[in-house]
């Protein structure tokens, strides 16, 4: 039975990927996720300036998932680059360097900058919903998403993943524009919403940022639909992210057309061992249903 999969010519031992924004502040934490069974690991998004992020509370635990607004905290580009370089050197699985900029030009500069660490992929985060001062996510406009993709591709030779937001009318149009401008892989989805949780005793929204992105179990149907629509519209591979916490969830995402699955919020209930759990359950499903490779599962729902 083969669990290997491919993203832009780069092979993954298994289809689980540590999603951006979860654990990935330090090289050591990325290494732990890798040793715990992730097929690839993604850093927390690296930005052009030092940022403390939002005050606490930055997370609300819900019955069906998490609401978070960490606010793109970042120790600054130089320190992030040191940590990224350490991660690339010490981890024997693909390392994905997530990054963001505040303008199209800055996305290009940041791509060039983090490429110095020689990660296996860079991932343009054009979809964080939690930083008001940055305005509407760039990923809300197909035209802007395309321009950012082009600016990044002109700045580096490292394979590019573009991470999309689900909070748009037509994610297909954005995926097509991103592919047209040279993206190698699409990652979908970032958090949903934003949403809000109010404490009714005090009357205050709990998050200091008031609103935050929704993740976990409750967004899986949205993620599956987005991945389905994207893979129907483009030829480049898709990383499906959103509510995956079991092997069956992973199968669903693969059948929708994902070539790999991102795992984030599931670390909350299952710990770092969630990657092994998912791959184990995925193998059980494959043997029970006579699948011998992921190729037989990927995109199956498209008929």
């Amino acid at each position: 039975m083969k669990l290997t999969t491919k993203l832009a010519k780069i092979k993954l031992d298994n289809p689980t990927i540590l999603a951006s924004g979860v654990l990935g502040v330090t090289a050591a934490a990325l290494n732990r996720a890798s040793k715990s069974g992730a097929g690839a690991v993604t850093t927390k998004s690296i930005g052009p300036q030092r940022r403390e992020g939002h005050d606490n509370p930055v997370v609300v635990e819900l019955d069906c998932g998490l609401l978070n607004a960490v606010g793109l905290s970042c120790p600054g580009p130089e320190e992030s680059l040191r940590e990224l370089t350490k991660a690339v050197k010490s981890i024997d699985k693909p390392v994905i360097a997530s990054f963001y900029g505040k303008s199209i030009l800055e996305f290009g500069h940041m791509a060039e900058f983090i490429s110095k660490a020689k990660p296996d992929f860079i991932e343009a985060n054009i979809s964080c919903p939690n930083v008001g001062e940055f305005g509407l996510p760039f990923g809300c406009s197909a035209k802007t998403a395309g321009k950012i993709t082009k600016a990044v591709k002109n700045s580096t030779d490292i394979p590019l993943i573009v991470k999309l937001t689900p909070n748009v009318v037509d994610i297909r149009a954005i995926a097509i524009e991103v592919e047209k401008n040279g993206a190698d892989v699409i990652c979908a989805i970032n958090t949903v919403g934003p949403g809000m949780k109010i404490d009714v005793t005090s009357g205050y929204p709990i998050l200091s940022n008031k609103t935050g992105g929704l993740s976990g179990e409750c967004i899986k149907p949205i993620a599956v639909r987005c991945v389905y629509e994207i893979s129907e519209s483009v030829d480049i591979p898709v990383i499906g992210v959103g509510g995956v916490s079991s092997g069956i969830d992973a199968v669903e995402m693969l059948m929708a057309g994902a070539a790999a699955v991102g795992v984030g919020t599931a670390v909350w209930h299952h710990g770092v061992d969630v990657f092994q759990k998912i791959t184990g359950e995925l193998m059980d499903f494959m043997s029970e249903n006579n699948y011998s490779s992921l190729d037989e599962i990927i995109g199956r729902s498209h008929g």
């Binding site: 654990l23 050591a28 978070n68």
Partner: peptide, 23 residues
């Protein structure tokens, strides 16, 4: 410095074990 407190954000991970203080 704890942010999420529930072992998700990774901010309190210690080098090199990556053990998380909150979790």
């Amino acid at each position: 410095y704890l942010k999420c407190g529930i072992g998700v954000c990774g901010h309190c991970s210690i080098d090199e074990s990556a053990l998380m203080v909150c979790r």
